[in-house]
Structures are given as C-alpha cells and as structure tokens.
Computed example of a mutant assay.
Amino acid sequence: MTAPIPAIVMAGSRPGPDPLLDGSGVATKALLPIAGEAMLVHVVRALRASPRVGAITVLAQNSRAIAADPALAAFEDVRFADSGQGISASLAAALPDDDAPVLVTTADNVLLTPAMIGEFLDGAEDSDVAVAMVERTVLLARYPESRRTWLKFRGGWWSGANLFRLRGRRARPLLDFWGRIERDRKKGLRIIAAFGPALLIGVLLRLLTIHQGVARAGRRFGVKARIVPMSAAEACIDADKPEDIVLIERIMAGRGF
C-alpha cells in the first residue's frame, strides 16, 4: 500500500477586498462560516478522514489567527504555518526538497470528500504535476445553476477542482512560471497564450484535448503533467461567490451535515 501523502491547504487571502466577507464579522475567507462552521474546518475534516492523507499543513498569511479558531485548534495534528503574499511562491517554498509528492488543496474547497481525494490520487499516479478538473456536462447535469470559469478544448469544456498533486522540486519551475501569470487565473486564453503560440493556436482551433494541451505545457518545463477528470460534479464547486455558498449549503444539507 502506498504511504499516506502529506497535504497542504492554501488558506491565505488574496489582495484587495473580498465581497464574501462584507458583514460577516471575520477577517479572512478561511474562517467564513458555511453550514455553521468555518470553511477551512470542512476541508481539514475531509483530509483527516481520508486514509490516503498523512500530515496536514495549513498555509496562511496570519496562520496564528486561523489556528486560534477553536474548531481548528481541535485538530491537534494539523500544522499551521505563515505564507507569503503570492500563492505560487508560498507553495513553492513549502514543497519538499526531494521528489516526494504532496497533495494541495484550498480552504474554499468545502465540498471535498475522502472519495474525491481517492479518485484524484488514483488518477494522478506517476505524474509530476496533476490537476483535478470537471468537464462541463458533468457539472451542468447536476447543478445547471452553477457558474464556473471554463477552459475550452476539443472534446469538452473544463473547470478546475482545487486539487493538485505536485512532486516536490520537480514542480518548482512550473510554479515559478505560474507566479508570473497568476493574476490572469480567471482568464483562460491568457493563461494558455502564456505557454506559447503553438499551444494557443491548438486550443483556439480545437485541435487539442485538454489532456494533450496540459501534457504539452508540462513538457515545456520538463515535467509529466496530467489532468485527472473528476466524476463528482461537486468537485469544482468552491466557495467563491455568495451564490456558491447558497448552493454549497444546500448540497451539504442533502448530505446530512
């Protein structure tokens, strides 16, 4: 049996005001209540419930404030560490110096389940960089009201599911590159264009599937990159907008928690 994989939860705040926090009484998104508990609690609980996950580290600009939350303090084996301002730089600094794999997720990935984690890790084997994504028809079949950012490729439109598997130092060049284009994370074509004109043309003309495109982008940095399609529509529903929280709480109520 494969040894449990360590996990990193990115729980920092992006620059600028966050409309989700208006009138909430909390200072950081990770502590925003969803279904009666801080969103980060839901994520850590799902990670802790998975037998595939080992040590958990939460990264945030003010990790002490997050660790002081009583529900989070109850997770005695979770480590809290301060991050920098940039997601990519903070994550790169937290990766192991060898090629050991790390599971990465975010504090707003509140619908995460152990089943999702298992499906993703099974699909991510033997890759240097793996990214979980949901195809549009999978989401719309269950939640047609959910609005996501889509990357359009031959054979489907895809949205990120906030799960990543990175093999330590091998992923650092790609993270350094991501740090330079991070501000355009919601603008799919700008991200694709940053990998070069050949990839952009292939996507615009629908010549490439997302699997081919990501593999080609990875080769530019000497890594084996892979997309892992997720079967659960909920995998790409994160707490990004007020309407997301309404939907998430409805889904949680249907789950019985």
Results as ranks from 00 to 15, higher is better:
residue 222 G to N: 06
residue 174 L to C: 07
residue 130 A to C: 08
residue 110 V to S: 11
residue 191 I to A: 08
residue 245 I to A: 02
residue 207 L to W: 15
residue 201 I to C: 05
residue 161 A to N: 05
residue 188 G to H: 03
residue 167 R to Q: 11
residue 181 I to F: 04
residue 214 V to I: 12
residue 138 V to D: 06
residue 235 A to V: 03
residue 123 G to E: 02
residue 153 F to Q: 10
residue 208 L to F: 11
residue 224 K to H: 08
residue 128 D to C: 06
residue 164 F to R: 05
residue 246 V to Y: 04
residue 131 V to D: 11
residue 110 V to K: 05
residue 210 I to H: 06
residue 165 R to G: 00
residue 163 L to I: 04
residue 216 R to W: 05
residue 147 R to Q: 07
residue 227 I to W: 00
residue 152 K to P: 03
residue 172 R to G: 03
residue 149 T to N: 15
residue 148 R to A: 12
residue 139 L to M: 03
residue 130 A to M: 07
residue 180 R to D: 14
residue 194 A to G: 15
residue 214 V to K: 00
residue 154 R to D: 15
residue 173 P to Q: 07
residue 179 G to C: 12
residue 223 V to E: 03
residue 229 P to K: 07
residue 193 A to S: 14
residue 193 A to H: 12
residue 198 A to M: 12
residue 144 P to M: 03
residue 228 V to N: 07
residue 161 A to H: 13
residue 113 T to V: 01
residue 119 E to D: 14
residue 241 K to T: 12
residue 213 G to Y: 01
residue 158 W to T: 08
residue 225 A to G: 11
residue 235 A to G: 08
residue 212 Q to Y: 04
residue 225 A to L: 09
residue 110 V to T: 14
residue 245 I to K: 09
residue 183 R to M: 10
residue 210 I to N: 04
residue 198 A to D: 11
residue 209 T to P: 10
residue 221 F to A: 00
residue 215 A to M: 06
residue 168 G to A: 06
residue 199 L to F: 07
residue 245 I to V: 12
residue 151 L to A: 13
residue 132 A to V: 01
residue 233 A to T: 02
residue 115 A to C: 01
residue 110 V to I: 12
residue 243 E to K: 13
residue 172 R to Y: 03
residue 165 R to H: 06
residue 172 R to T: 15
residue 122 D to R: 12
residue 143 Y to E: 08
residue 203 V to N: 11
residue 117 I to Y: 02
residue 128 D to T: 10
residue 189 L to F: 11
residue 151 L to Y: 13
residue 200 L to E: 08
residue 170 R to A: 15
residue 171 A to F: 00
residue 141 A to I: 09
residue 154 R to C: 12
residue 204 L to D: 00
residue 210 I to Y: 06
residue 224 K to S: 07
residue 178 W to V: 07
residue 244 D to V: 02
residue 212 Q to H: 08
residue 183 R to G: 14
